[in-house]
């Protein structure tokens, strides 16, 4: 209880990290809703890894073109964001274009993307002699290093993503649920897809930068899967996913602080426990009432 009171104090030393955690935990599921509904869950593994490769590439490119970079300053973070975003958005656009052509299986494309991204991340780090522990931390997502300035950027950008997701939710829903109908209605399907991918790309890039690929993937997928079991409407699905994500991120932070655990894994573990409990409760409930399970 004392630990809970402490982390809720305004002057809590890790307040920025806590707020950053909850922000990532809240916004990633809002994007993840579309991963689940479009059956692109495994893309949630590949894209954060691609984002990490982008960060590593940005540093290598900077060193080759400009010269050695300094660790821990704002320009290093900006560089990382540019690299992460370019790789994530590029990857998602290429994968989407390949999906339209449909020559290979989805699993093959995503598997190859993940393997290539993971290999590139390590290779880029090996090429850059300045790729020391601090950079590795940046790749893994060092949420405890969140500062007021980086939190401000995170809140502004993720806030904009949330506004876009809610403002255009009927367009995103239509192109996701029935693409043909959107074409018949003469909606700009490509533009809406691109805008959605942009929102996904920005969220994943910032998520990886802030909390790392593991937490980003976990929160893209686990809270929406939990919310899917509890809701019957699109809006309540999105809101429940965001709520569960934010809450489990907070509880995960508390557990990590209270029991001195690594933060990211603790957050994902809490979210997964909630998913397991809700799944079990839903199955028992359905078994008792004889109702059908949602697909």
């Amino acid at each position: 209880m004392a630990a809970l009171v402490e982390i809720l104090r305004p002057g809590f030393i890790l307040r920025d990290a806590l707020v950053g955690s909850v922000l990532v935990g809240t916004v990633c599921p809002l994007v993840g809703v579309y991963f689940v509904l479009r059956r692109m869950i495994f893309l949630g593994v590949a894209l954060p890894q691609l984002s990490a490769a982008g960060i590593a590439f940005a540093f290598v490119a900077y060193r080759l073109i400009v010269g050695p970079h300094e660790h821990g300053n704002v320009s290093e973070r900006s560089l990382a964001i540019v690299g992460a975003f370019a790789f994530t958005l590029g990857g998602i656009l290429v994968l989407a274009a390949m999906e339209r052509r449909g020559r290979e299986t989805v699993e093959a494309r995503i598997g190859v993307t993940y393997a290539v991204a993971a290999a590139l991340t390590i290779l880029f780090l090996a090429v850059d002699p300045h790729g020391d522990a601090q950079m590795v931390n940046l790749l893994k997502g060092d949420i405890l290093a969140t500062t007021s300035a980086s939190l401000g950027v995170l809140a502004s950008v993720l806030g904009a993503v949330v506004v876009v997701l809610f403002a255009f939710r009927k367009e995103f829903l239509l192109v996701s649920f029935d693409r043909d109908l959107a074409v018949v209605f003469r909606k700009r399907v490509g533009v809406w897809d691109l805008l959605l991918y942009l929102a996904i790309g920005i969220t994943i890039s910032l998520g990886v930068m802030t909390a790392g690929p593991l937490v980003t993937f976990g929160f893209l997928v686990v809270p929406p899967l939990t919310a899917r079991l509890l809701t019957r409407r699109m809006l309540s699905f999105s809101l429940a996913a965001a709520g569960i994500g934010g809450l489990t991120a907070f509880v995960g932070f508390y557990c990590a602080y209270r029991f001195d655990l690594p933060l990211g894994p603790a957050e994902v573990a809490v979210a997964s426990v909630v998913l397991a409990l809700v799944t079990a409760a839903t199955m028992v409930g359905r078994w008792r009432t004889g109702a059908r399970l949602a697909p």
Partner: peptide
Amino acid sequence: TLDPIFPLSALEVVLMGTYARL
């Protein structure tokens, strides 16, 4: 052709028809 994974009520599906003019 429509994926049952979407948590939509019958009314929400019908509302999509109105998006044509929105």
